[in-house]
Write a protein that binds this DNA or RNA. Structure first.
Length: 551
DNA sequence: GTAGGGTTAG
């Protein structure tokens, strides 16, 4: 009785009847792309047989809709072609019942619930009767890396079933995840656990993650402190770790402290080019051109010759000042000194020219490189696509994108992201979704930056159905749906008159244990006020008072 | 994780 019959799911032929368990059916429904031409005759309930039949007319989706508004009737028929193709490939029950896939989906389903505490996550996972594996955990940590409670829950649950400790690398992933969510007490607890497991469990990688995550959270003194005490964790305090802390501080807008640390330790730990390059980069980002130059001088005084990275950093600093005359001089100097510019140097120069509306000069850099037979890479092309699109030349940008394979350059995530962003900026919805689909067929993995412009565009166009499709798509592709996503959605929906949806996303974020930015609340409240929706406003204000559970 | 992707609107 636990089996049910389904017909014509997701483009399967009507004549082809497949047997699916309830769970398979639900996972299929959950993972199915938008606008499948199906009609669920009977809503799925546990242990209930399900009958699905093809809708005779337009595709209708009747499943799980509590709110009609969420499921706008489809217009994106081209997704359906995809299914036709899948059908041709013989996509059937065997494909969808792949065990590890099913496990991943089961776990994901469990983790999408809202949990009060870490213990309740672990409990729910215990009840799921899934047997954990190392690869399943790795996948889930990635999928939920913006959601510490789920990630840590999976980790604890799995380790308790595996009968052995995870590898140091897996622990490092957990450390990074907790640091990303600013759960520093928990992060340190895990570091201590690692120390207790045995020697060499904590490595320079672990401590680099700790230092960088503290730095990113603006806790610069804590990150410096972690470096000072690093030997307590069995990691040497050497040039490698010194460079990590200097680089982290320089990147996190605290190059002054980075410089302090360099001065404090330079006698004990003699710096190398890496140290100076990080400092130069920090000064450049702080828009302190003079300091970039003096750091380079100091480098020479230490008997270290500036390398291509030092020069490139200096050039980037002049690019920020739009001093392109000086940039040209430096490019010449590099040639003379036998340290010629490389592809990265040229990409920076071209990009800066393009951003400064000097598109013709930027294209001259491109021509020069082509003429010289330079090997151009994907990042270079992404820059080119970006500046062309920014200059309003979307057609040219697309042409460059299309030409890449002919020139033997593989289009990667970054290339697709740039193209998708460009197309979305011009609100070409179909094109944008086609590109996402193309990524799928070409096996290029999407990341957060792939979805962000698409989600924004959907907010603008009020495409709620596509939006919900994209969110599922994200998670299915192991791109974690975190605070960044919620923030984008709340803002986007608020600004485009989808207030109720903005509220429910805000609520969802709180329930998932995220602490929304103040601006998210403010924006929603102001809009609700404007619309005179006092009931909802009260609800949101109450939401603010909910203190997230820390364990 | 020593240098290259652009983000919040009006």
């Amino acid at each position: 009785m636990n089996r049910c019959f389904a017909r014509s799911i997701a483009g399967f032929n009507v004549n082809k009847v497949c047997k699916l368990s309830c769970i398979s059916f639900c996972t299929l429904i959950e993972s199915s792309k938008i606008d499948d031409p199906i009609e669920v005759i009977k809503p799925p309930k546990d242990d209930d047989p399900i009958v699905v039949a093809e809708s005779p007319e337009i595709p209708i989706w009747v499943k799980i809709s509590e709110n009609e508004d969420d499921f706008v009737l489809p217009s994106l028929s081209y997704w359906i072609d995809n299914y036709k193709r899948n059908e041709a490939k013989g996509y059937d029950e065997t494909t969808i019942s792949n065990k590890s896939d099913i496990d991943a989906k089961k776990i994901t389903k469990v983790l999408r619930e809202r949990f009060e505490s870490l213990d309740s996550v672990v409990q729910a996972l215990n009840d799921s009767r899934v047997t954990p594996s190392e690869s399943l955990v790795a996948q889930m940590l990635k999928r939920f890396d913006n959601n510490w409670k789920s990630a840590y829950g999976v980790f604890i649950w799995a380790e308790s079933h595996m009968g052995a400790k995870f590898s140091p690398a897996m622990y490092d992933v957990l450390i990074d995840c907790l640091g990303k969510s600013k759960k520093f007490d928990l992060m340190w607890e895990v570091v201590k656990q690692m120390v207790d497991i045995g020697e060499n469990y904590v490595t320079i990688n672990t401590m680099a993650k700790v230092i960088r995550r503290l730095g990113k959270a603006g806790m610069h003194e804590d990150s410096i402190d972690a470096f000072r005490r690093i030997e307590e964790f069995g990691v040497k305090r050497d040039l490698l770790t010194l460079n990590v802390v200097i680089d982290s501080l320089a990147k996190e807008k605290n190059v002054e402290r980075a410089n302090d640390i360099y001065l404090e330790f330079k006698d004990e730990i003699p710096p190398n080019s890496h140290t100076f390059n990080s400092l130069m980069h920090g000064w450049s980002k702080a828009r302190q051109l003079g300091k970039v130059q003096t750091t380079m001088d100091e480098m020479r005084e230490h008997g270290i010759c500036p390398d291509v990275i030092s020069y490139t950093t200096l050039i980037e600093a002049y690019c920020c000042e739009k001093d392109f005359r000086k940039v040209d001089l430096l490019l010449e100097e590099m040639q003379e000194k036998g340290c010629p510019p490389n592809i990265i140097t040229y990409t920076i120069v071209m990009h800066a020219l393009g951003k400064s509306k000097e598109i013709d000069k930027a294209l001259k850099v491109y021509d020069k490189m082509k003429a010289r037979g330079c090997v151009l890479d994907t990042s270079f092309y992404s820059s080119l696509i970006y500046i062309l699109s920014k200059a309003g030349r979307l057609k040219d940008a697309r042409e460059v994108f299309d030409e890449m394979p002919e020139r033997g350059i593989k289009r990667d995530t970054q290339t697709y992201n740039t193209m998708i962003t460009s197309v979305c900026k011009h609100t070409q919805e179909e094109e944008a979704l086609k590109l996402l689909r193309e990524m799928e067929t070409k096996g290029v993995n999407p990341d957060f930056d792939t979805y962000a412009p698409l989600l924004k565009m959907c907010c603008k166009l009020k495409r709620m159905k596509v939006l919900s499709f994209l969110l599922t798509h994200m998670s299915d592709n192991n791109v974690s749906v975190g605070l960044g996503t919620y923030s984008l959605l709340v803002r986007g929906l608020c600004m485009n008159g989808k207030l109720k949806h903005a509220c429910s996303f805000l609520e969802d974020a709180v329930m998932k244990g995220f602490i929304p930015y103040d601006t998210m609340f403010k924006m929603v409240e102001t809009e609700l006020e404007k619309e005179g929706m006092s009931e909802e406003k009260k609800r949101i204000q109450e939401l603010k008072l909910i203190q997230p559970n820390t364990c």
